[in-house]
Amino acid sequence: MKLKSNIATSENGFIFNPATGDSFTSNGIAAEILAYMKLAESEQEIKKRIIDKYEVEPSQLERDWDDYMLQLKEANLLDL
């Protein structure tokens, strides 16, 4: 799960893909995960950070994670 290298993100959740010209907004947690991904943190590390910080069951995060990755893929933001 690697973010394409040229994707621009901002702290307030704005995402821009210069290759396609598409822009996106994201909610807080989505932006946070993207930031960790940019730092090349592993999936496990990122999940642990989220679980430590937020009120969420690991099983819930697991499902939401998969869904989020699907969204990023659909949006052409992942390096496959």
Binding site: T25, I29, E32, I50, E55, Y68
Partner: peptide, 10 residues
Amino acid sequence: KQKYERPTIK
């Protein structure tokens, strides 16, 4: 801990 919301983009 903070309130959670599933990650999503639009």
